[in-house]
Design a binder for these strands. Structure first.
Lengths: 99, 99
DNA sequence: GGGATATTTGGTTATTATACCAAATAACAA
DNA sequence: TTGTTATTTGGTATAATAACCAAATATCCC
């Protein structure tokens, strides 16, 4: 693996890392049918809001979601919707393990 | 998020974790066009073979690849080929960040 | 059996990720 | 301006990952 390849795979792995947390996958699913306010996540999860904020930050920095501040609230939405279609693939992996 | 959902997302995140390393993504790409012997990875990478073996183990436990021992050598191949199509999506993310 | 090769496993250490709390910032309302 | 709500950022302790070396295992050849 040469230097250029290495950079390429490092960048790619950052995307996967961003998706490597149950809470963040849940967030992605929540955004599947449109934007959501941070406050909605806070209500539905039993973790500190600072924790949620950091998860959102990870996804945003990876380029998977984008934020939009309107008034006091911040709305997030999916930037890269092909992530959703990969979820089906992941489910297939889980199925194949189970059987 | 209820208990069942939590388990589901935890399982899912394990798949992503397995793909969250440059070397492991490289391995997946290497397997795109068919099975490869561990020794081939050892030759092409500049890391300890025990490290490679552990990366292969991570991918195998996640159900992404399968191993087949023939003689002294172990051959690995992709079990879940839809992973490859997601790579295009990931590349799209990278593109969108770059621009 | 004994030696050589291929791969995995265990141990140790360094780096990275995560959660919570507390404090900071931003926007709006009184 | 002061208070209130929404969200982010910084600090810190703990847990998970990853790399290397050394040792174990498995297979083949003599």
């Amino acid at each position: 693996m040469n230097k250029e390849d290495k950079k390429h795979y490092e960048a790619k792995s950052e995307i996967f890392k961003a998706l490597s947390h149950p809470t963040r996958l849940w967030i992605v699913d929540q955004l599947a049918d449109g934007e959501k306010c941070v406050c909605e996540f806070v209500d539905k999860l039993d973790v500190d809001f600072s924790t949620i904020s950091k998860h959102l930050s990870v996804l945003r920095h990876a380029g998977i979601i984008v934020s939009d501040k309107r008034g006091k609230q911040v709305y997030y939405s999916l930037q890269v919707t092909c992530v959703l279609s990969f979820m089906n693939c992941v489910d297939a992996v889980l199925e194949s393990i189970r059987n």
